[in-house]
């Protein structure tokens, strides 16, 4: 063997060691390699055998999940879970769990998925699979249907209502710091803020969370959103890390619900029914 060949051999050996070492150290790479050979989904198989999809949620976040008078979980997410399960020919078993314990329950196999107004969390992508968002609860700019405001820059010089101390208040102050010349008008409640926009005309726009906005719209108030959310809070369905088939089925069904209007229907039902208690005028 020549000297050059020896050097090449040593170099190749070092590279091989580095590659194997990297794979050995990285759990994600290991699983990706394994799954490429054998993509079985134990969660989906268990759902099929059981005839039930076990869904974890915390019924403390109306209108997405709450308890009715007899203690039964109801809400947007509950109905979404039942509709998804039905589309796969199984039933949804709802398991009420405290919000903080939901990821642990999923990891421990106590439930098959989380459907609980659960915001996407990139820190958990090593542990779980996520669906595409089915709702964004983020902060929106809302105006009267007749308004000429059509984008963020149109707020320059405008009086903008915010809920004192809330996310809209904070983002409004940030926009001011960033140079947008708007005047913030704080209100103690969202109801007062909406009334100021639609009745008193004391503000030209409001910063409001999308759930409140959709509830107001569902109640028939002449409000429309401007631009994409100023702060996005996408709600997703969470699944075990290797539940590839469940994820595929879920994406198909969600896509179907988006195209056939099922998600809109859910919004109308749950946002409108619970709109009257906190939406003015």
């Amino acid at each position: 063997m020549t000297q050059r060949e020896r050097i090449l051999l040593v170099t190749a050996g070092v590279i091989l060691l580095l590659v194997f070492g990297g794979v050995w150290l990285n759990k994600g790479v290991q699983e990706a390699l394994l799954s490429s050979f054998w993509r079985s989904d134990g969660t989906w198989e268990a759902i099929q055998q059981r005839g039930a999809w076990r869904v974890g949620l915390d019924p403390s976040f109306p209108p997405f999940e709450m308890l009715d008078a007899s203690g039964v979980p109801i809400g947007y997410d509950v109905e979404l879970a039942h509709a998804l399960a039905a589309s796969w020919g199984v039933r949804a078993d709802i398991v009420a769990i405290g919000f903080d314990s939901l990821p642990d329950a999923l990891k421990a196999g106590k439930i098959d998925s989380i459907v609980s107004a659960y915001p996407y969390d990139e820190r958990l992508t090593q542990d779980f699979l996520f669906s595409t968002p089915y709702f964004d609860a983020g902060l929106r700019i809302a105006v009267h249907n007749r308004s000429t405001i059509n984008e963020l820059s149109d707020l320059s010089g405008a009086r903008v209502g915010v809920e004192w101390g809330g996310l809209g208040d904070m983002v409004g102050r940030r926009l001011q710091r960033e140079g947008l010349t708007l005047t913030l008008q704080p209100f103690e409640t969202p109801e007062e803020m909406i009334a100021a926009l639609l009745e008193a005309n004391s503000v030209e726009a409001i910063l409001i969370d999308n759930v409140m906005l959709r509830k107001a719209q569902a109640a028939g108030l002449p409000l429309r959103a401007v631009n994409a959310p100023l702060e996005s809070i996408p709600y997703v369905i969470v699944m075990p890390r290797r539940a590839y088939e469940l994820q595929r089925q879920l994406e198909n069904s969600l896509h179907q619900f988006q195209t056939d209007g099922k998600l809109d229907e859910l919004e109308r039902r749950w946002f409108a029914e619970h709109a009257t208690e906190d939406v003015a005028p």
């Binding site: 403390s60 709450m66 107004a117 609860a137 101390g165 809330g166 103690e188």
Partner: peptide
Amino acid sequence: DHPRWTRAVRPAQR
């Protein structure tokens, strides 16, 4: 002051 948690209050109240 979460907008929907049943144990929360409005930001102004907080």
